[in-house]
Amino acid sequence: MSSPAPSDADGLTVGQVSARLGVTVRALHHWDEIGLARPSLRTVAGYRLYTATDLERLHRIVVYRETGLGLDRIRAVLDDSAVDVPGALRAQRAQVAERIERLQGLGAGLDRMIEAHERGLLLTAGQQATVFGPGWDPDWPTRAREAYGDTTQWQQYAERSASRDVDDWQTVADAVAELDRALADAMDAGVEPGAPEADRLVERHREVFSSFFPLTRPMQVCLARRYEADPGFAAHYDGIRNGLAAWFRRIVDAAARAHGIDPDTATWE
């Protein structure tokens, strides 16, 4: 016949203490092994039993552990009369406050990341017009999200967008505008596809475009093809210089061939 379970007056088993305090049996065994909280009683069979005094110490250990104190510091707080307990707790409180501040910053960053994935561009319509010019369509990010939201490139774009403010986007817009002017000037000067200056402009385009997402050479070929074929893109480039979209595609194709890429079979990868 088994013996009846011990009462609180007799002492509590490890399992009972674990359930009562919400700590694991493994943790209780560890605290026993290191001498932090040892049960005062044993059954005839050698099982640990915790008294009310033991339980009070365990409760304090749990409270201090939840504040973030390490076990060695908890031991000192409990056993060393020379320890300034309020001072130790104030120091821990300061560390907790720092962690809270860091977590709040992380939370704000996550909010911006979520919003960037959903909206693409974290600027108001007015800010977009100021940065990108009056001809900018503020609905473009929404349409782009609908078209490309499930792509790796949209995710990369969103991650960059989440960390940018108005000034950052102005820097990007200025770099794009300077590149457009350089392309137009080179075409006006009669720069031929495959010429060193044309190849430098192709590389510059890839560098500038990395502000949005990494652009491989095959992807650049596909993008240049779209610049020429898409009415919206073609209107933009041909509005800068008539024929600029077609010329840009030719210099990109020539640079691709120089790197062993067949423009006719290039894919978005």
Score class of each variant (00 low, 15 high):
residue 45 A to V: 10
residue 85 V to I: 10
residue 106 L to I: 09
residue 41 L to Q: 15
residue 86 P to V: 02
residue 69 L to H: 02
residue 42 R to G: 12
residue 135 G to A: 07
residue 121 L to I: 08
residue 68 G to W: 11
residue 62 V to P: 06
residue 141 P to M: 07
residue 103 L to W: 09
residue 79 D to Y: 02
residue 118 E to K: 05
residue 122 L to C: 05
residue 49 L to S: 07
residue 92 Q to T: 07
residue 135 G to P: 01
residue 111 D to L: 05
residue 106 L to D: 10
residue 49 L to W: 04
residue 54 D to Y: 07
residue 54 D to Q: 10
residue 117 H to Q: 14
residue 71 L to R: 08
residue 80 D to V: 02
residue 48 R to A: 03
residue 110 L to Q: 11
residue 112 R to S: 00
residue 140 W to N: 05
residue 53 T to D: 15
residue 131 V to E: 04
residue 93 R to Q: 13
residue 111 D to N: 06
residue 112 R to F: 01
residue 71 L to E: 03
residue 82 A to C: 05
residue 107 G to F: 03
residue 40 S to P: 09
residue 86 P to A: 01
residue 64 Y to V: 00
residue 94 A to G: 08
residue 108 A to F: 01
residue 122 L to Q: 06
residue 95 Q to H: 12
residue 87 G to P: 03
residue 54 D to F: 04
residue 138 P to F: 09
residue 69 L to V: 01
residue 66 E to P: 02
residue 123 L to V: 06
residue 48 R to D: 03
residue 124 T to F: 02
residue 39 P to S: 10
residue 132 F to N: 05
residue 114 I to M: 09
residue 123 L to N: 06
residue 62 V to F: 02
residue 47 Y to F: 15
residue 105 G to R: 00
residue 139 D to M: 13
residue 117 H to F: 13
residue 91 A to Y: 02
residue 90 R to G: 04
residue 80 D to A: 10
residue 91 A to R: 12
residue 75 R to H: 12
residue 73 R to V: 13
residue 81 S to R: 14
residue 129 A to Y: 07
residue 83 V to D: 08
residue 88 A to G: 03
residue 131 V to T: 00
residue 105 G to A: 11
residue 47 Y to N: 13
residue 93 R to G: 14
residue 69 L to E: 01
residue 80 D to N: 00
residue 110 L to I: 13
residue 85 V to N: 00
residue 95 Q to F: 08
residue 102 R to C: 02
residue 101 E to Y: 09
residue 61 I to G: 03
residue 89 L to R: 08
residue 113 M to I: 07
residue 124 T to K: 02
residue 108 A to E: 12
residue 43 T to I: 11
residue 96 V to W: 09
residue 97 A to M: 04
residue 39 P to W: 07
residue 83 V to G: 04
residue 100 I to D: 07
residue 76 A to H: 13
residue 139 D to R: 14
residue 129 A to E: 12
residue 50 Y to G: 07
residue 117 H to N: 11
residue 121 L to A: 05
residue 110 L to H: 10
residue 75 R to N: 08
residue 67 T to P: 02
residue 133 G to S: 05
residue 61 I to H: 04
residue 133 G to W: 08
residue 119 R to S: 10
residue 45 A to R: 15
residue 105 G to H: 00
residue 70 G to C: 01
residue 123 L to I: 06
residue 141 P to T: 09
residue 109 G to P: 00
residue 85 V to A: 07
residue 44 V to Y: 15
residue 55 L to I: 11
residue 94 A to L: 13
residue 88 A to Y: 00
residue 79 D to W: 08
residue 99 R to W: 09
residue 109 G to N: 09
residue 130 T to D: 15
residue 140 W to A: 12
residue 138 P to I: 07
residue 64 Y to G: 05
residue 134 P to C: 06
residue 117 H to M: 14
residue 50 Y to C: 08
residue 104 Q to F: 05
residue 128 Q to M: 15
residue 133 G to I: 02
residue 135 G to H: 00
residue 103 L to R: 09
residue 75 R to Q: 11
residue 124 T to H: 00
residue 58 L to P: 06
residue 130 T to K: 14
residue 109 G to L: 04
residue 114 I to W: 07
residue 45 A to T: 15
residue 115 E to M: 03
residue 54 D to G: 10
residue 89 L to P: 02
residue 69 L to D: 03
residue 51 T to F: 01
residue 44 V to E: 15
residue 99 R to H: 11
residue 55 L to Q: 12
residue 104 Q to M: 11
residue 63 V to M: 13
